[in-house]
Amino acid sequence: MRDYIKRFIIAIIMAICVSLLFLGGKHSEAAGINKNEVITNHWIWPADGIISDTYGTRHGRHKGIDIAGRINTPILAVLDGVVEKSYYSNTYGNVVFIKHQNGFVTVYAHLNKRQVYKGQKIKQGDCLGEMGQTGQATGTHLHFEVHHFEWRYDKKYALDPEKLLGKADVGESVQAGITKVGDSVLAASSQIRSQQHDSSATLNKYVVKEGDTLYTISHKLKTSVRAVKNLNHLTTDLIKPKQILYVP
């Protein structure tokens, strides 16, 4: 009888331990997902243009998205990071690789010009170069890729960029500086006049806070509402919290 009771108690203890391990594992997994959602909620689109090709086409060999646009359209960093590579490739043409702290690597290919160098620290929205048709490219466009952990020749860790930037079908227009927060989209500047394009002006990024208006922002930064609207190509006075504005 005593042996039976001991076995029964041991079985209960083991069941409790297994339950705790299971719950702990679920909690860690959920925490990881939530953290990843926070990380990817603030990516911005890298260029103005029209989606000309999406991830997974060409029998699964196309491991990025293509944004077709005008020659020399500014190409923006989607997130803070460090330039891992900046060079000319026979396939990618002028290409920039950026390593981000969250473990992602982004690739910007077929650029007409590169404006950053290996090891350079980059802020979200910084101009990396200009859209072009270098390397194995048909037409002027940006080929943009996202990789988790590292870029490999076999592109084992490639991800669909639209999962991080937001959904856009072929033929749809996208705007540089747009960021996705949940289901809503917050607009930033559509065309960035970087310091490389206008040496007479130095631009700063301003993140809109709760209660901000264009008037309070321009007054605080000693500029005009018209200057802020023109610089960011705003057609109305409507702005939203967490929106990125470029100011003199």
Rank of each mutant, 00 (worst) to 15 (best):
N36C: 04
N112M: 02
G119H: 13
K156D: 10
C127T: 10
V38W: 07
K35Y: 14
F104S: 09
Q115D: 06
H59M: 09
V105K: 12
V18M: 12
N94V: 10
H148Y: 14
G64P: 00
F22I: 14
R152V: 02
N94P: 03
K156L: 11
R70K: 09
H143R: 06
E145K: 03
I44G: 05
G129M: 01
E162L: 13
P46Q: 01
Y55G: 12
G24T: 05
R152K: 08
N112I: 06
G69Y: 03
K156I: 07
Q124H: 09
L142G: 00
F97M: 15
I75G: 03
V83L: 12
N72M: 07
R58P: 01
L79G: 14
V107Y: 00
R61N: 06
I67D: 00
R61W: 00
E84P: 12
G139M: 02
E29T: 06
T57V: 15
M14Q: 04
H42K: 12
I33R: 10
T91E: 13
Y88L: 06
K156M: 13
F22G: 02
G69A: 05
S52M: 06
Q120V: 01
S86T: 09
L159V: 07
E37W: 10
Y108M: 02
R152F: 02
A137Y: 04
V38I: 11
V82N: 04
T40R: 15
Q120K: 09
